[in-house]
């Protein structure tokens, strides 16, 4: 863990990026735990434990999952609210007032 990673990454180590601008995390498919490595924008590879910067945007299991879920929740709400906040198209208001005037056929049939 203290040793910086060699350049030749094992083929199973693949970078996964959680969001734009975040560091790259390497997760090893074969291992149960992701190897805790961070790739900075300058493509410098640093084991997480030896990071000196004070911005802990690296992957931490529960913490990062919570952040991702929050992020998903916000995006989801934004996509939904984007439509909800639109004015109601006239066609629907016209439809309802039209329906209000005409007796419902299904209703008569009952």
């Amino acid at each position: 863990m203290d040793e910086p990673l060699k350049k030749d990454l094992p083929p199973r180590l693949r970078p996964v990026i959680l969001r734009r601008g975040a560091e790259v995390a390497f997760l090893e498919t074969a291992a149960l735990e992701p190897s805790s490595l961070v790739l900075t924008r300058s493509a410098e590879i640093i084991p997480l434990g030896s990071r000196k910067t004070s911005s802990p945007t690296h992957l931490r299991k529960d913490h990062s999952r919570q952040k991702i879920d929050d992020h998903i929740g916000q995006q989801l709400q934004a996509v939904y609210d984007d439509v909800v906040s639109q004015p109601i198209p006239d066609r629907f208001l016209e439809l309802l007032s039209q329906l209000g005037k005409e007796p419902s056929k299904e209703e008569d049939a009952r």
Binding site: R14, L27, R41
Partner: peptide
């Protein structure tokens, strides 16, 4: 583009 190699992403990993 920023990290000058194309990462091979295995979607299953996450």
């Amino acid at each position: 583009a920023d990290i000058d190699w194309q990462p091979g992403i295995d979607s299953l990993i996450m």
